[in-house]
Write a protein that binds this DNA or RNA. Structure first.
Lengths: 202, 202
DNA sequence: CTCGTTATAGTCCACATGGAGTATTCGACG
DNA sequence: CGTCGAATACTCCATGTGGACTATAACGAG
């Protein structure tokens, strides 16, 4: 039983539900549909992903075509196993949250190496960038709705908006606390004995 | 100029600010402090990360010790270049959001392959799991505050809480719209001509 | 009609990741 | 006092990732 599919593999399989394609065409389609905002799309990774799908019987070759005098291309078709594997993976991703590791908490966790002033300035800059992104996403979603794209295709955008709002709220909380001095930035910070665990309860 | 540091590399450098350590000790310290919830910590990756830091002059060997009769261990010390590189990286992460790719939007984006009932049931299950996680994080933060851990060390937890709340709101929105029928789950979905772009504006 | 540009359709290879394994030592239990 | 499990401190290698490169064709500007 071949293991977990990567997000890019799932996107590829989903495209093949519609019709057979060659990898380059998948990449184009994903880009045209804006799905490359949700899935990290790098061409070589896509080719590798398709290779693995082939190896695992999730897709099969449907022919090597020479259309016009373009470079050779291998087209793939979805198998029943591939379809099933994709659905299983989607369900698994929906069913339970998996640990993901955004860098922002790490950065803030080490931000005490910076001066309070620097942190304030840099976070203020970030705040602006996040606001701008929020604006862009809103506009994309609204434009799509106007064009008649069904709501359920835009749920990812709604999620992004929620996340951006959460980030804004959090940045604002930090900036407020930095200003009010509630964040004790200049206190000596513990080195040897972390107070995170009284690890000697014996 | 060596490139971007990985999150794990930054955590390693941050530990070395306190005192020289060997990799295994870094791993233990990160775990004791609960930082392995923010940074993905796998022992082999840590060794590789330290190797790269050594190669790039961010750390130097400070001796191969045999304490007691334990296996040999190589201890590393931070260099000035390493300290600077870490601060630069932290500032870069704070200054601007970088594209990250959570799987949930991808999964929801392909969820139309599932039946409405299945999506509802699976998302309801997820909702419970997210609630439980939110509870756990809250308790961890409160416990740490009680022990006198400074606020600024717990900003990551606050961020997690904001994000979990955002996810809950989003799940609830989907479940509501699925129930009310606002999400037109059973409509025929476009295959050949995506309405995402009228890609013929000529 | 030639020359730089963009689009097509990929491949190469250097690098990063992480499950599983190794080898030694310490501590506890019978 | 032997052995069995856990901790210590790594290493191996299969797999995944992605910047840079290749090679051909169509396209437009001079």
């Amino acid at each position: 039983m071949a293991d977990d599919l990567t997000p890019l593999a799932v996107s590829a399989l989903a495209l093949l539900v519609e019709r057979p394609m060659h990898p380059y065409e998948m990449a184009q389609t994903l880009r045209v549909r804006g799905q490359d905002l949700d899935v990290k799309l790098r061409v070589p990774s896509l080719y590798h992903a398709v290779e693995r799908l082939l190896r695992d019987g999730h897709v099969e070759e449907v022919g090597v075509g020479r259309e016009g005098k373009r470079p050779e291309r291998t087209t793939y078709r979805l198998t029943a196993a591939g379809r099933a594997a994709m659905e299983t993976q989607v369900v698994a991703w929906l069913r339970q949250p998996r640990a993901e590791y955004p860098v922002l908490p790490v950065a803030v966790g080490e931000a005490h190496f910076l001066s309070r002033a620097q942190v304030e300035s840099v976070l203020a800059e970030r705040r602006g960038a996040v606001l701008a992104e929020r604006d862009t996403v809103t506009r994309m979603r609204d434009a799509a709705l106007d064009k008649g794209v069904p709501r359920r295709m835009l749920l990812g955008k709604e999620y992004s908006l929620h996340r951006l709002d959460a980030e804004l709220a959090w940045i604002d909380a930090i900036l407020t606390d930095l200003d009010s001095g509630a964040l004790d930035w200049d206190q000596p910070f513990l080195t040897s004995t972390p107070p995170f665990t009284e690890q000697d309860p014996s």
